[in-house]
Amino acid sequence: MKKTAQSLAKNAVMAAALAATAFSAQAAELDIKLYNLTHGITFTPVVVAAHDSQTMLFKVGDTASAALQKMAEGGAIDDLSSQVTTAGGVVVENPAQGMLGAGAMTMAMLDTQDNMYLSLTAMLLPTNDGFVGLDSWKIPSEAGTYTVWLNAYDAGTEANDEIINGGGASGTPGIPVAPNSDGGTGASGVRSTESNNMVHIHPGNIGDTDATGGISDVDSRVHRWLNPVAKLVVTVK
């Protein structure tokens, strides 16, 4: 029995070696570092995906998918992640093991196999449906270290009312939470409608300085940003 097990293990190793050979022309080992560059915005769990040219997490100028909406409004990456793996892509989920705060960095390693494109998303808190994104960056074939600056996008699925009420489910108005307990309460709301329902560049938070009222539960001194909101450093080995 023992011998058989060893033999099986050996076969498995060989199979793995063969598989590696088959993909060696395109496979890339990536070391990834993601820096949150904002003043006071928190990233929810990050999903990093390597995929083919037909797959995407999002695209500017297109309507958000239900999976993207779920991530952008509530931070849940499971549907985005399974869409990628179903299509033959590979993902790293939640490398920071939770929230990635302002000023923080997280690292991930990714074997892209035969996938040529890299994408990334994470929700921005506190926002209604803002997210940091990378859409289908072509993974360089040459070994080296590459820096990519990432922008904040608006999923276009929820009006930016800036009311913190726990609303994180798709279609539920409001912001789920200000993770650093630096948000307000009792805001009347910045806006109740949004005319651009495509994925677009986020116009930014408005905020106010009234913690118990005003138009916004977001603090204009803490929760604003300008692009870029993140730096991605990718080392192709």
């Binding site: 922008n151 910045v190 806006r191 560049i201 116009p203 930014g204 408005i206 106010d208 300008l226 692009n227």
Partner: peptide, 19 residues
């Protein structure tokens, strides 16, 4: 926008960031 500038004809949705 009118959230911060009295008399502005713009509302918060008209704000923009690059690109």
């Amino acid at each position: 926008s009118n959230a911060e500038l009295t008399g502005s004809m713009l509302s918060p949705e008209h704000k923009f960031d690059n690109p």
